[in-house]
Design a protein around this nucleic acid. Structure first.
Lengths: 115, 115
DNA sequence: ATGATATGTGACTAAAGGGTAACATATATT
DNA sequence: AATATATGTTACCCTTTAGTCACATATCAT
């Protein structure tokens, strides 16, 4: 039981990896630059996270000499979004409005029951 | 080191939970209905997953008698999307185009080096 | 009330994954 | 060639978590 975006979700599950993506948001950074941003972590921990992000396709890598530039790739994030926001879902607004109605009905029920 | 959406990402990390969200996409389902869709899993495993999804705010719950209706809430997913697709990121197209250029440069370099 | 249905809880097990330390390779610079 | 810099690898520890079993509670129908 496993879907295509599994690696992406697993990658996004860790806060350190999300912070890495935050750091890559303005533009590419080398591995060393990223390590510098994590004083509390070993260099290798950061590299491991970068590897997981790269396997998931969230980070694209370009090597230049002894430097490795890491790029944020937002395509998988867009796919995540579309998975549950796509056309087959109930419309966001109508869905929430309907739940709001239900909850209000519930509150009324609770009031009547004196809970 | 922990951000506001931590529970959401943790919740999305498991394929069973993503399947549950898929099942809720067309509309609300009761817990029992969801259990029926997972022959290979114990009923309690499904309930545990629903609890995690509810804690993350991805599933909203309305109780009616002995039934519990589970609703998909897409708001956190939209927040995930906006975190890295927002205005401070490099534009999706330009970012990818720039990387494409870099990769092509890389390929040329490799060719020259005869790798 | 009583049985059937639907959901909630406590304790435990086993695998996955984040962390470090020590070691290895590759590239630039002098 | 020799040193410093930047990145890659192997082996191990420990916490987290997905899973089960057994038991408990609440609601509907007769």
């Amino acid at each position: 039981m496993d879907d295509a975006l599994d690696a992406v979700f697993k990658a996004l599950a860790d806060p350190t990896r999300r912070r890495i993506l935050d750091l890559l948001k303005p533009g590419p950074r080398t591995t060393g630059q990223l390590c510098g941003a994590f004083d509390e972590l070993s260099r290798f921990a950061v590299m491991k996270h970068l590897g997981i992000l790269a396997d998931a396709g969230l980070v694209l890598v370009r090597r230049e000499g002894r430097k490795r530039f890491n790029y944020l790739n937002t395509v998988p994030i867009r796919q995540v979004y579309e998975r549950w926001m796509g056309p087959y879902a109930e419309l966001w607004s109508s869905s929430l409005l309907r739940l709001k109605d239900h909850v209000e009905k519930d509150l009324n029920r609770d009031d009547k029951d004196g809970k």
